[in-house]
């Protein structure tokens, strides 16, 4: 599905990605984690061509992302992306946010796009918000709209860039529930997140990055139970402490 081959990316003189290679299979959920500045978000943006990398290649179903012959707009329209700060269009209603790309890119009729949008809003649990503007929604609702907006294009792959980092703790579960359902339905997902509970529950593979390199990757179980790398262990001990405290308080999705 996604084949990342020896990708390196520089911002001016700063090497943000350093020879990244990995393969993600169809239907898998892969969690990218690591300290901030480790290149997780950059890697995510390379996958749908929002970032131009200088070396290496990325293939999505055999199509090279940076090949000049590739129709990048068509490729992006099959890859959904969800952002840390939602990035809903503030001048459009929830409904308009969701139907913009289906109407303009997929050339769907307004009616068809709106029916699909309502279905998705119901699926993420907020059908009553359809005619509101983003500013009238809570953070958790905004992020669920953003997920619905991405799903409206019927993507074959979903990219999540720290989808819960900007949310209040009570809102996080709503968004993670939606993402878990999506993973269970067989969506291929790449998720940058520090929500290790989510990673434990649904990730097929966890990739740990540091300073632009993949330090460790493997199935969730072995990743948590016996991390091989010292840096990974350090990172986990810091982050799992947070999770333990949260689970004790909320006793939720673990």
């Amino acid at each position: 599905m996604i084949e990342i081959k020896d990708v390196s990316l520089w911002y001016k003189n700063f090497k943000a990605l350093d020879h990244i290679s990995t393969t993600i299979l169809k239907g898998q959920t892969v969690v990218l984690c690591g300290p901030s500045g480790s290149g997780k978000s950059s890697l995510l943006r390379c996958i749908n061509g929002l970032e131009h990398f200088q070396e290496g290649e990325i293939f999505i179903d055999g199509v090279s992302v940076q090949d000049p012959k590739t129709d990048i707009y068509q490729l992006r329209s099959t890859i959904g992306m969800v952002f840390q700060h939602f990035e809903l269009y503030p001048h459009m209603t929830v409904m308009e946010n969701i139907t913009l790309a289906p109407i303009r890119v997929r050339k769907k009729s307004k009616k068809e796009a709106e029916e699909k949008a309502m279905e998705l809003l119901e699926w993420v649990g907020i059908p009553e918000q359809a005619l509101k503007y983003p500013e009238e929604l809570s953070g958790g609702q905004k992020q669920r709209v953003a997920i619905a907006r991405a799903l409206a294009m019927e993507p074959k792959l979903m990219l999540f860039d720290e989808p819960t980092s900007a949310l209040d703790p009570e809102m996080i579960k709503d968004v993670l529930d939606v993402m878990m359902n999506l993973a269970k339905e067989g969506m291929t997902m790449v998720v940058v997140t520090h929500e290790m509970g989510f990673a434990k529950a649904v990730a097929d593979e966890i990739i740990f990055m540091n300073e632009g390199r993949i330090i460790e990757k493997g199935p969730a179980q072995s990743f948590f139970d016996n991390p091989k790398n010292e840096r990974t262990r350090q990172f986990l001990s810091r982050i799992l402490w947070q999770i333990d405290s949260r689970v004790k308080v909320k006793g939720s999705w673990n």
């Binding site: 992306m81 990035e87 269009y89 913009l100 790309a101 991405a150 294009m153």
Partner: peptide, 27 residues
């Protein structure tokens, strides 16, 4: 207009013209 708005629009497959016209200019 926040840079993330353009990224969101591009990521959904809109062209740069569509992104400017529907997302950036109105804001």
């Amino acid at each position: 207009v926040a840079r993330g708005q353009a990224l969101a629009a591009y990521s959904s497959g809109l062209t740069s013209y569509q992104t400017t016209y529907y997302v950036l200019l109105p804001q």
